[in-house]
Simulated scan of single mutants.
Amino acid sequence: MTVDFALSQDQEDLRQAVRDVAATFSDEYWAERDEKHEFPWEFYKTFAEGGWLGIAIPEEYGGGGLGILEASLLLEEVAASGAGMNGCSTMHLTIFGLNTIVKHGSAELRQEILPRAADGSLHVCFGVTEPDAGTDTTRISTFARRDGSDYIISGRKVWITKAADSQKMILIARTAPRNETKPTDGMSLFLVDIDSDKVHLQAIPKMGRNAVQSYEVLFDDLRVPGSTLIGEEGNGFRYLLDGLNPERILLAHEALGIGRAAIRRASRYAKEREVFGRPIGMNQGVAFPLAEAVTHLDAAELMARNAAWRYDQGLPCGREANMAKYLCAEAGFRAADQAIQTHGGMGYAREYHVERYFRESRILRLAPVSQEMVLNYVSQHVLGLPKSY
Protein backbone atom coordinates (compact mmCIF):
# COMPACT_ATOMS: atom_id res chain seq x y z
CA MET A 1 0.00 0.00 0.00
CA THR A 2 1.46 3.33 -1.10
CA VAL A 3 1.79 6.01 1.57
CA ASP A 4 1.24 9.50 0.16
CA PHE A 5 0.59 12.41 2.48
CA ALA A 6 0.22 14.92 -0.35
CA LEU A 7 -3.31 16.33 -0.22
CA SER A 8 -5.58 15.75 -3.19
CA GLN A 9 -7.02 18.69 -5.10
CA ASP A 10 -10.38 18.07 -3.43
CA GLN A 11 -8.74 18.21 -0.01
CA GLU A 12 -6.87 21.40 -0.90
CA ASP A 13 -10.14 22.91 -2.14
CA LEU A 14 -11.79 21.91 1.15
CA ARG A 15 -9.05 23.65 3.13
CA GLN A 16 -9.39 26.81 1.10
CA ALA A 17 -13.17 26.84 1.39
CA VAL A 18 -12.99 26.48 5.18
CA ARG A 19 -10.28 29.14 5.32
CA ASP A 20 -12.48 31.56 3.37
CA VAL A 21 -15.52 31.03 5.59
CA ALA A 22 -13.56 31.15 8.87
CA ALA A 23 -11.80 34.35 7.80
CA THR A 24 -15.14 36.22 7.94
CA PHE A 25 -14.93 35.96 11.76
CA SER A 26 -12.19 38.19 13.11
CA ASP A 27 -9.94 37.81 16.12
CA GLU A 28 -11.97 40.59 17.69
CA TYR A 29 -15.14 38.52 17.27
CA TRP A 30 -13.54 35.59 19.11
CA ALA A 31 -12.04 37.77 21.83
CA GLU A 32 -15.44 39.30 22.52
CA ARG A 33 -17.22 35.94 22.63
CA ASP A 34 -14.56 34.62 24.98
CA GLU A 35 -14.69 37.65 27.26
CA LYS A 36 -18.49 37.63 27.46
CA HIS A 37 -18.75 33.82 27.75
CA GLU A 38 -21.15 33.82 24.79
CA PHE A 39 -21.58 30.84 22.50
CA PRO A 40 -20.58 31.88 18.93
CA TRP A 41 -23.94 31.23 17.34
CA GLU A 42 -23.24 33.28 14.21
CA PHE A 43 -20.15 31.18 13.50
CA TYR A 44 -21.92 27.91 14.27
CA LYS A 45 -24.90 28.71 12.05
CA THR A 46 -22.65 29.78 9.17
CA PHE A 47 -20.83 26.46 9.21
CA ALA A 48 -24.07 24.54 9.70
CA GLU A 49 -25.67 26.21 6.70
CA GLY A 50 -22.57 25.42 4.66
CA GLY A 51 -22.98 21.71 5.44
CA TRP A 52 -19.68 21.44 7.29
CA LEU A 53 -20.95 19.94 10.56
CA GLY A 54 -21.77 16.58 9.02
CA ILE A 55 -18.48 16.22 7.17
CA ALA A 56 -17.84 12.74 8.59
CA ILE A 57 -21.48 11.60 8.97
CA PRO A 58 -22.52 9.02 6.33
CA GLU A 59 -24.18 10.43 3.23
CA GLU A 60 -27.40 8.47 3.77
CA TYR A 61 -27.99 10.59 6.89
CA GLY A 62 -27.31 13.92 5.21
CA GLY A 63 -23.60 14.08 5.92
CA GLY A 64 -20.54 14.39 3.73
CA GLY A 65 -19.33 10.83 4.23
CA LEU A 66 -15.70 11.93 4.33
CA GLY A 67 -12.86 10.59 6.45
CA ILE A 68 -11.04 11.67 9.58
CA LEU A 69 -8.40 13.42 7.47
CA GLU A 70 -10.93 15.76 5.87
CA ALA A 71 -12.54 16.41 9.26
CA SER A 72 -9.10 17.13 10.72
CA LEU A 73 -8.28 19.58 7.93
CA LEU A 74 -11.56 21.36 8.62
CA LEU A 75 -10.79 21.81 12.32
CA GLU A 76 -7.15 22.72 11.71
CA GLU A 77 -8.21 25.56 9.41
CA VAL A 78 -10.84 26.75 11.87
CA ALA A 79 -8.26 26.88 14.66
CA ALA A 80 -5.68 28.54 12.39
CA SER A 81 -8.12 31.30 11.48
CA GLY A 82 -7.83 32.65 15.03
CA ALA A 83 -10.97 30.88 16.23
CA GLY A 84 -8.84 28.49 18.25
CA MET A 85 -10.55 26.02 20.54
CA ASN A 86 -13.63 28.23 20.88
CA GLY A 87 -14.34 27.71 17.20
CA CYS A 88 -13.40 24.05 17.03
CA SER A 89 -15.41 23.13 20.13
CA THR A 90 -18.67 24.27 18.55
CA MET A 91 -18.49 21.35 16.09
CA HIS A 92 -15.83 18.99 17.40
CA LEU A 93 -18.26 16.74 19.28
CA THR A 94 -20.63 16.49 16.32
CA ILE A 95 -17.75 15.29 14.16
CA PHE A 96 -16.22 12.68 16.45
CA GLY A 97 -18.75 11.96 19.20
CA LEU A 98 -21.51 10.71 16.95
CA ASN A 99 -19.19 8.08 15.49
CA THR A 100 -20.42 5.91 18.36
CA ILE A 101 -24.00 6.14 17.11
CA VAL A 102 -22.92 5.54 13.51
CA LYS A 103 -21.16 2.33 14.53
CA HIS A 104 -23.29 0.99 17.37
CA GLY A 105 -26.64 2.79 17.43
CA SER A 106 -29.85 1.18 16.24
CA ALA A 107 -31.20 2.05 12.79
CA GLU A 108 -33.97 4.05 14.48
CA LEU A 109 -31.49 5.98 16.62
CA ARG A 110 -29.26 6.77 13.65
CA GLN A 111 -32.20 8.03 11.65
CA GLU A 112 -33.45 10.14 14.54
CA ILE A 113 -30.13 11.77 15.45
CA LEU A 114 -27.69 11.91 12.55
CA PRO A 115 -29.61 14.05 10.01
CA ARG A 116 -30.36 16.71 12.64
CA ALA A 117 -26.76 16.71 13.82
CA ALA A 118 -25.52 17.06 10.25
CA ASP A 119 -27.73 20.09 9.55
CA GLY A 120 -26.83 21.70 12.88
CA SER A 121 -30.31 21.66 14.40
CA LEU A 122 -29.33 19.17 17.13
CA HIS A 123 -26.52 19.71 19.65
CA VAL A 124 -25.10 16.65 21.40
CA CYS A 125 -22.57 16.72 24.26
CA PHE A 126 -20.50 13.87 25.64
CA GLY A 127 -20.68 12.80 29.30
CA VAL A 128 -17.76 10.65 30.46
CA THR A 129 -15.54 12.38 33.04
CA GLU A 130 -16.46 12.33 36.73
CA PRO A 131 -14.94 14.19 39.71
CA ASP A 132 -13.79 11.03 41.50
CA ALA A 133 -12.76 9.02 38.43
CA GLY A 134 -10.81 11.34 36.15
CA THR A 135 -8.76 9.40 33.62
CA ASP A 136 -9.77 6.05 35.15
CA THR A 137 -13.16 5.71 33.48
CA THR A 138 -13.66 2.29 35.09
CA ARG A 139 -14.14 4.13 38.40
CA ILE A 140 -17.22 6.09 37.33
CA SER A 141 -20.11 5.92 39.77
CA THR A 142 -22.99 7.32 37.71
CA PHE A 143 -25.45 4.43 37.68
CA ALA A 144 -28.36 3.48 35.42
CA ARG A 145 -30.66 0.96 37.12
CA ARG A 146 -33.35 -0.96 35.36
CA ASP A 147 -36.98 -0.14 36.16
CA GLY A 148 -39.21 -2.15 33.86
CA SER A 149 -38.38 -1.14 30.30
CA ASP A 150 -36.76 2.11 31.49
CA TYR A 151 -33.54 3.09 33.19
CA ILE A 152 -33.20 5.54 36.08
CA ILE A 153 -29.90 7.43 36.05
CA SER A 154 -28.24 9.08 39.02
CA GLY A 155 -24.75 10.53 39.29
CA ARG A 156 -22.48 13.40 38.42
CA LYS A 157 -20.34 14.33 35.41
CA VAL A 158 -17.76 17.11 35.14
CA TRP A 159 -16.00 19.09 32.37
CA ILE A 160 -18.90 18.50 30.00
CA THR A 161 -18.37 20.77 27.00
CA LYS A 162 -21.41 22.56 25.57
CA ALA A 163 -23.87 20.93 28.00
CA ALA A 164 -26.09 24.02 28.34
CA ASP A 165 -26.21 24.46 24.56
CA SER A 166 -27.11 20.81 23.86
CA GLN A 167 -30.38 18.97 23.79
CA LYS A 168 -28.89 15.50 24.21
CA MET A 169 -25.90 13.81 25.81
CA ILE A 170 -24.07 10.61 24.98
CA LEU A 171 -23.64 9.35 28.52
CA ILE A 172 -21.65 6.46 29.93
CA ALA A 173 -22.98 4.98 33.15
CA ARG A 174 -22.61 1.78 35.10
CA THR A 175 -25.38 -0.73 34.66
CA ALA A 176 -23.61 -3.25 36.91
CA PRO A 177 -21.26 -2.80 39.88
CA ARG A 178 -17.54 -2.64 39.15
CA ASN A 179 -15.89 -6.05 38.87
CA GLU A 180 -12.26 -5.81 39.99
CA THR A 181 -11.18 -8.61 37.66
CA LYS A 182 -13.02 -7.13 34.65
CA PRO A 183 -13.34 -3.42 35.49
CA THR A 184 -14.36 -2.33 31.96
CA ASP A 185 -17.43 -4.60 31.98
CA GLY A 186 -20.82 -3.37 33.16
CA MET A 187 -20.75 0.11 31.62
CA SER A 188 -23.34 1.19 29.07
CA LEU A 189 -23.85 4.11 26.70
CA PHE A 190 -27.08 6.09 26.51
CA LEU A 191 -28.32 8.99 24.43
CA VAL A 192 -30.37 11.02 26.91
CA ASP A 193 -32.33 14.26 26.89
CA ILE A 194 -30.76 16.79 29.25
CA ASP A 195 -33.51 19.40 29.08
CA SER A 196 -35.15 18.05 32.23
CA ASP A 197 -35.78 19.15 35.80
CA LYS A 198 -33.89 15.97 36.76
CA VAL A 199 -30.69 17.31 35.17
CA HIS A 200 -28.86 20.21 36.84
CA LEU A 201 -26.03 22.19 35.21
CA GLN A 202 -23.35 24.35 36.79
CA ALA A 203 -20.82 26.24 34.66
CA ILE A 204 -17.16 25.79 35.65
CA PRO A 205 -15.10 29.01 35.73
CA LYS A 206 -11.91 28.31 33.81
CA MET A 207 -8.79 29.83 32.27
CA GLY A 208 -9.70 29.72 28.59
CA ARG A 209 -12.10 28.65 25.85
CA ASN A 210 -14.88 30.53 27.58
CA ALA A 211 -17.14 31.06 24.56
CA VAL A 212 -17.85 27.33 24.69
CA GLN A 213 -18.29 26.64 28.36
CA SER A 214 -17.76 23.50 30.42
CA TYR A 215 -20.21 22.24 33.03
CA GLU A 216 -20.73 20.00 35.98
CA VAL A 217 -23.88 17.96 35.35
CA LEU A 218 -25.93 16.29 38.09
CA PHE A 219 -28.45 13.53 37.27
CA ASP A 220 -31.14 13.20 39.91
CA ASP A 221 -33.08 9.99 39.14
CA LEU A 222 -33.47 10.81 35.44
CA ARG A 223 -35.83 8.28 33.86
CA VAL A 224 -35.00 7.32 30.26
CA PRO A 225 -36.59 4.71 28.00
CA GLY A 226 -34.67 1.56 27.11
CA SER A 227 -34.56 2.73 23.50
CA THR A 228 -31.94 5.32 24.50
CA LEU A 229 -29.40 2.55 25.07
CA ILE A 230 -26.66 2.58 22.42
CA GLY A 231 -25.75 -0.97 21.42
CA GLU A 232 -25.76 -3.69 24.04
CA GLU A 233 -25.95 -3.18 27.77
CA GLY A 234 -22.59 -3.62 29.46
CA ASN A 235 -20.44 -2.94 26.38
CA GLY A 236 -20.32 0.84 26.63
CA PHE A 237 -16.63 1.06 27.44
CA ARG A 238 -15.74 -0.92 24.32
CA TYR A 239 -17.88 1.40 22.22
CA LEU A 240 -16.19 4.37 23.84
CA LEU A 241 -12.78 3.10 22.73
CA ASP A 242 -13.86 3.38 19.08
CA GLY A 243 -13.81 7.15 19.43
CA LEU A 244 -10.47 7.58 21.20
CA ASN A 245 -8.11 7.44 18.22
CA PRO A 246 -10.14 9.75 15.96
CA GLU A 247 -10.56 12.21 18.83
CA ARG A 248 -6.80 12.33 19.38
CA ILE A 249 -6.24 12.87 15.66
CA LEU A 250 -8.75 15.71 15.47
CA LEU A 251 -7.35 17.46 18.52
CA ALA A 252 -3.81 17.09 17.20
CA HIS A 253 -4.82 19.05 14.12
CA GLU A 254 -6.57 21.68 16.25
CA ALA A 255 -3.33 22.16 18.20
CA LEU A 256 -1.49 22.62 14.89
CA GLY A 257 -4.01 25.25 13.86
CA ILE A 258 -3.59 27.28 17.04
CA GLY A 259 0.18 27.08 16.66
CA ARG A 260 -0.07 28.32 13.07
CA ALA A 261 -2.23 31.25 14.13
CA ALA A 262 0.25 32.18 16.86
CA ILE A 263 3.27 32.01 14.54
CA ARG A 264 1.46 34.08 11.90
CA ARG A 265 0.81 36.90 14.38
CA ALA A 266 4.27 36.68 15.92
CA SER A 267 6.01 36.81 12.54
CA ARG A 268 4.00 39.83 11.50
CA TYR A 269 4.79 41.63 14.74
CA ALA A 270 8.50 40.76 14.40
CA LYS A 271 8.56 42.42 10.98
CA GLU A 272 6.69 45.54 12.06
CA ARG A 273 8.02 46.24 15.56
CA GLU A 274 11.19 48.32 15.55
CA VAL A 275 13.59 48.64 18.45
CA PHE A 276 17.04 50.24 18.23
CA GLY A 277 16.22 51.37 14.71
CA ARG A 278 15.47 48.00 13.12
CA PRO A 279 12.74 45.31 13.08
CA ILE A 280 13.08 42.92 16.00
CA GLY A 281 12.79 40.03 13.54
CA MET A 282 16.34 40.82 12.36
CA ASN A 283 17.60 39.66 15.74
CA GLN A 284 18.39 35.96 15.84
CA GLY A 285 17.23 35.89 19.46
CA VAL A 286 13.75 36.61 18.12
CA ALA A 287 13.93 34.88 14.73
CA PHE A 288 15.45 31.57 15.77
CA PRO A 289 12.86 30.61 18.40
CA LEU A 290 10.09 31.29 15.86
CA ALA A 291 11.91 29.26 13.24
CA GLU A 292 12.34 26.44 15.75
CA ALA A 293 8.65 26.60 16.70
CA VAL A 294 7.46 26.32 13.10
CA THR A 295 9.90 23.45 12.53
CA HIS A 296 8.30 21.56 15.42
CA LEU A 297 4.84 22.29 14.01
CA ASP A 298 5.79 20.92 10.61
CA ALA A 299 7.32 17.77 12.12
CA ALA A 300 4.27 17.18 14.33
CA GLU A 301 2.00 17.67 11.32
CA LEU A 302 3.60 14.69 9.59
CA MET A 303 2.71 12.39 12.49
CA ALA A 304 -0.83 13.78 12.57
CA ARG A 305 -1.29 13.21 8.83
CA ASN A 306 0.13 9.69 9.21
CA ALA A 307 -2.34 8.89 11.99
CA ALA A 308 -5.29 10.23 9.99
CA TRP A 309 -4.23 8.29 6.90
CA ARG A 310 -3.90 5.04 8.85
CA TYR A 311 -7.30 5.50 10.48
CA ASP A 312 -9.01 6.14 7.14
CA GLN A 313 -7.27 3.08 5.66
CA GLY A 314 -8.61 0.92 8.48
CA LEU A 315 -5.09 0.25 9.79
CA PRO A 316 -4.08 0.10 13.47
CA CYS A 317 -3.26 3.64 14.57
CA GLY A 318 -3.17 3.74 18.36
CA ARG A 319 0.57 4.41 18.37
CA GLU A 320 0.35 7.12 15.73
CA ALA A 321 -2.79 8.79 17.12
CA ASN A 322 -1.34 9.07 20.61
CA MET A 323 2.02 10.30 19.38
CA ALA A 324 0.33 12.83 17.10
CA LYS A 325 -1.71 14.20 19.98
CA TYR A 326 1.40 14.47 22.16
CA LEU A 327 3.63 16.09 19.54
CA CYS A 328 1.03 18.51 18.21
CA ALA A 329 -0.06 19.62 21.68
CA GLU A 330 3.57 20.32 22.60
CA ALA A 331 4.31 22.09 19.31
CA GLY A 332 1.13 24.18 19.41
CA PHE A 333 1.73 25.30 22.98
CA ARG A 334 5.37 26.05 22.27
CA ALA A 335 4.38 28.22 19.30
CA ALA A 336 1.79 30.12 21.35
CA ASP A 337 4.27 30.65 24.18
CA GLN A 338 6.90 31.94 21.77
CA ALA A 339 4.35 34.26 20.18
CA ILE A 340 3.87 35.92 23.57
CA GLN A 341 7.62 36.16 24.06
CA THR A 342 8.04 37.75 20.63
CA HIS A 343 5.48 40.43 21.51
CA GLY A 344 7.23 41.15 24.78
CA GLY A 345 4.99 42.92 27.27
CA MET A 346 2.33 43.44 24.61
CA GLY A 347 1.99 39.68 24.33
CA TYR A 348 0.32 39.80 27.73
CA ALA A 349 -2.24 42.30 26.43
CA ARG A 350 -5.52 41.08 24.95
CA GLU A 351 -5.13 43.52 22.09
CA TYR A 352 -2.74 41.21 20.21
CA HIS A 353 -4.70 37.98 20.86
CA VAL A 354 -1.68 35.76 21.42
CA GLU A 355 -2.50 35.47 25.12
CA ARG A 356 -5.79 33.87 24.07
CA TYR A 357 -3.97 31.40 21.84
CA PHE A 358 -1.71 30.60 24.79
CA ARG A 359 -4.65 29.92 27.10
CA GLU A 360 -6.45 27.77 24.54
CA SER A 361 -3.37 25.80 23.49
CA ARG A 362 -2.68 24.89 27.12
CA ILE A 363 -5.82 22.78 27.41
CA LEU A 364 -4.59 20.45 24.68
CA ARG A 365 -1.76 19.25 26.91
CA LEU A 366 -4.44 18.10 29.38
CA ALA A 367 -7.38 16.94 27.29
CA PRO A 368 -8.81 14.65 26.12
CA VAL A 369 -5.92 12.74 27.66
CA SER A 370 -2.93 14.18 29.49
CA GLN A 371 0.55 14.08 28.03
CA GLU A 372 1.56 11.77 30.87
CA MET A 373 -1.13 9.24 29.95
CA VAL A 374 0.06 9.30 26.34
CA LEU A 375 3.55 8.46 27.57
CA ASN A 376 2.04 5.66 29.65
CA TYR A 377 0.47 4.29 26.47
CA VAL A 378 3.72 4.50 24.53
CA SER A 379 5.72 2.97 27.39
CA GLN A 380 3.37 0.01 27.68
CA HIS A 381 2.10 -0.62 24.14
CA VAL A 382 5.08 0.50 22.05
CA LEU A 383 8.06 -0.28 24.28
CA GLY A 384 6.50 -3.25 26.07
CA LEU A 385 7.32 -1.91 29.53
CA PRO A 386 5.27 -2.94 32.60
CA LYS A 387 2.05 -1.05 33.16
CA SER A 388 2.62 1.69 35.72
CA TYR A 389 -0.94 2.31 36.91
Rank of each mutant, 00 (worst) to 15 (best):
C317R: 05
L244T: 13
A324E: 04
L364W: 07
I280H: 11
M323Y: 07
T90K: 00
S361W: 02
R264Y: 07
T90I: 06
S227D: 04
V354L: 06
G87A: 11
H343Q: 05
F39R: 04
A266I: 04
V199T: 10
A300W: 05
D165K: 07
K45I: 06
I95H: 06
E232T: 10
A252T: 06
S214A: 13
G314S: 03
N210A: 05
A335P: 05
A287P: 05
E28G: 12
C328F: 04
A270Y: 10
Y239T: 01
R319N: 08
E372C: 01
W52C: 03
Q11A: 12
S188D: 06
F219Q: 06
V369R: 13
G344A: 06
Y44P: 00
R145N: 09
G285D: 12
R273W: 12
H123I: 01
G285E: 08
V374K: 01
G105V: 03
M169C: 13
G63Y: 01
S267G: 14
Y215F: 15
F190W: 05
I57H: 10
D197T: 14
Q371V: 11
E351T: 15
P289E: 07
D27L: 14
I140K: 00
R116K: 15
R278M: 11
V369F: 14
A17V: 01
N376T: 06
M85Y: 12
S370T: 15
R116G: 02
T228V: 07
F47C: 01
M303C: 07
T24V: 04
L383M: 14
M373F: 12
I160H: 00
F288Q: 14
I55N: 08
Y44V: 00
G67V: 09
G105F: 11
D337F: 14
R178D: 02
L74Y: 15
A79Y: 03
G344M: 08
L93S: 13
S81E: 02
V217N: 06
M1V: 09
I153D: 01
H343C: 10
S196P: 07
Y326E: 04
F288I: 12
S141Y: 01
A255K: 02
R248M: 14
N245T: 11
